[in-house]
Simulated scan of single mutants.
Amino acid sequence: MNFVPAQNGDIPALHALVESAYRGESARRGWTHEADLLGGQRTDAEALREMIAADNQVILLAKKGNAITGCVQLSRVGGGLAYLGLLTVDPALQAAGLGKQLLGESERFVRDQWQANAIEMTVIRQREDLIAYYERRGYARTGELRPFPHGDRRFGLPKTTELEFAVLRKPV
């Protein structure tokens, strides 16, 4: 498995991967989907293009040959903190260890490239199984909750008004 920064030419395949893993019937093949909580899109090509162009962000791709099998978005927050988002694994490959590899590569990247000493993420609070997965990998709930961007269609169409994010953090 190779881990490389995404380029603009990767956007069509990257967008298709993210949508297949988070939304709709294809997402149900894997265990990390949000299809029961959210409809609509997870992201769009313009948002991915903005992430790739930003000086303080990178999307790392997991590639097997030319195929994109997973990705993760990393952002420099400052003060030794980095943010991890958009962790995606092809639903057909979930439970094969790629998510764990992406987390490890993310932690190494932010520590070595940005000199971060901690990494944080937000996970929909109602996703207890996913939060437990991250806790088994050393992430801990901070106790902080952040609002879900209800009404912003770019982030999906919530099927409940109770969605909010739990903040998890890990020293790196």
Rank of each mutant, 00 (worst) to 15 (best):
S106N: 02
R146Y: 10
L157D: 07
Q73S: 15
I59T: 03
Q57R: 15
R28M: 05
C71Q: 05
P147C: 06
G78I: 11
T142I: 09
N2L: 09
R153P: 08
F109V: 09
V58R: 10
I124P: 06
L48F: 14
T43P: 00
T142E: 07
F3I: 10
L98R: 05
P171N: 07
D36H: 08
F3R: 05
I52N: 01
K100M: 05
R153C: 12
A116W: 11
Q7A: 15
G156R: 05
L84T: 06
C71I: 03
I68F: 12
L168W: 14
G65T: 05
L145M: 13
N56T: 09
L14E: 01
P149H: 14
I68A: 05
I124V: 09
R146E: 04
L37F: 15
E105A: 08
K100G: 07
R153D: 15
Q73V: 09
E50C: 09
R29M: 03
P158Y: 12
L98W: 11
P171E: 11
R137S: 07
A166H: 15
R23A: 00
I11G: 00
Y133I: 02
L60Q: 03
A47P: 02
R125V: 01
S75F: 05
L87T: 08
G70K: 10
S75Q: 15
L145I: 06
G156E: 10
L48K: 06
S106A: 03
K63G: 01
Q101Y: 10
P171G: 11
A132I: 04
A6V: 05
A67Q: 13
F3V: 13
K100T: 14
G104T: 14
A82D: 09
Y22T: 01
I52A: 00
L81R: 00
Y134R: 13
S20H: 11
T69F: 06
G40W: 07
N2M: 14
L14G: 03
L81K: 02
K159Y: 10
A53L: 13
V167G: 09
E46D: 13
R28Q: 09
E107I: 09
T160L: 11
A35Y: 00
Q94G: 13
K100Q: 15
E135K: 12
